[in-house]
């Protein structure tokens, strides 16, 4: 083979080496994409499992009970009018027992107060009227001097939304089963 052809072939080999490098790079990128994709899928599944776990852990009545227990202490220490205090204690008792309709009836008679806002939001949550419940929660969270303002933290919001989503799917499930039964 002539020297010229050898030189030409060496140039082709140089290009071949460059192609090999690019090929390696493409393989690395592909592997990286695969790893990222697996990681993203695993993370999504993990999040989903966490959500399902939370959804199973959070029970509406248990959640309301926890919030009423926090409020009950405040009622005893702050509210001065004895009649109102007794009524609020009655509401708390009804909420603890899960009698949300009765609690709603008592609350109707009570004057406006921070305690009433808090109990009304919990009562409507128990009745699964999220729209009204949220109205009161928004009112509490926007008033920085509200007695229950600090109760609405990240944990509260997360649990509240989990209950809301779970309720939505429960309703959908009922609707779906109702239709198939027909």
């Amino acid at each position: 083979m002539e020297i010229k052809e050898i030189k030409d072939r060496v140039k082709i080999e140089h290009n071949r080496e460059l192609i090999d490098k690019v090929k390696e790079q493409l393989h690395r990128e592909k592997r990286m994409r695969q790893v990222l994709s697996i990681f993203a899928k695993s993370f999504s599944i993990f999040l989903l499992l966490v959500f399902f776990h939370l959804a199973n852990q959070v029970k509406v009545h248990q959640f309301i009970l926890e919030q009423v227990n926090k409020a009950y202490i405040n009622v005893e220490t702050i509210e001065r009018s004895r009649l109102i205090t007794y009524s609020l204690q009655g509401v708390a008792m009804e909420l603890k027992q899960g009698n949300y309709s009765d609690a709603k009836e008592i609350l109707k008679e009570l004057p406006q107060s921070h305690h009433k806002d808090w109990f009304v939001s919990l009562t409507y949550l128990g009745l699964k009227d999220f729209e009204t419940s949220q109205e009161y929660l928004v009112k509490i969270s926007t008033q920085t001097d509200h007695l229950y303002h600090d109760n609405i933290d990240y944990t509260f919001c997360m649990k509240y939304h989990v209950i809301q989503v779970r309720n939505f799917y429960d309703q959908e499930g009922k609707k779906y089963l109702g239709r198939t039964a027909e």
């Binding site: 030409d8 082709i12 071949r16 192609i19």
Partner: peptide
């Protein structure tokens, strides 16, 4: 890779 290196050349 040989064809591509040749085309580049």
């Amino acid at each position: 890779r040989y064809s591509l290196s040749k085309v580049i050349w």
